[in-house]
């Protein structure tokens, strides 16, 4: 080793280089890694089928495309962006939050809120009926009931007096 330091170093570098290449070639994305992205995409030819479970040849090719891009070191976002640019936003399981797509993100929560509001109003009405003669005593100011009784008594008296 002492006699040939330069040669030894060269051999070491070459060996590391070869090992590195072999290791890099062995890095093949697993099915799980591919499917993690594939399940966020939809089959291009058979509607409503996620890419990770789609059995068609087109989907198999798309999954291989994902695998190849993962092997190239592309990120999940980069891969999804490629699919959107190449095939359109319809391939995404979740439409991008832009333009007209906002409707599908805004309308359902609004409808749920409106439904909850209507339900709340209905329940409140059910629990506290509108009939003023039924349950107002507790809410009325003291003396109001007496005044009403007095008023009714006077009407009754007048009516009796007419007879």
């Amino acid at each position: 080793m002492k006699r040939y330091p330069l040669i030894s170093l060269l051999v070491l570098i070459l060996a590391l280089g070869i090992t590195g290449t072999v290791l890099a070639q062995d890095v093949r994305p697993t099915d799980d890694e591919v499917n993690a992205i594939a399940k966020q995409l939809y089959c291009p030819v058979c509607e409503n089928t996620p890419l990770d479970v789609c059995p068609t040849e087109a989907c198999r090719e798309w999954r291989e495309q994902i695998r190849a891009m993962l092997a190239e070191g592309k990120s999940e976002e980069e891969i999804k962006q490629f699919f959107v640019e190449y095939y359109g936003a319809r391939v995404l399981s979740e439409p991008p939050r832009q333009g007209f797509n906002w409707v599908i993100y805004i309308v359902p929560p609004l409808v749920i809120l409106a439904g909850a509001g209507i339900l709340f109003m209905g329940l409140r009405k059910w629990v506290t009926p509108d009939d003023p003669g039924h349950d107002r005593g507790a809410k009325e100011a003291p003396g109001t009931a007496d005044e009403e009784n007095e008023y009714l008594a006077r009407i009754e008296k007048e009516l009796l007096g007419k007879d």
């Binding site: 030819v45 087109a58 090719e61 798309w62 291989e64 495309q65 190849a68 095939y87």
Partner: peptide
């Protein structure tokens, strides 16, 4: 080429 991958 419709819904096809570039390489294929």
């Amino acid at each position: 080429a419709w819904t096809d991958t570039p390489a294929n």
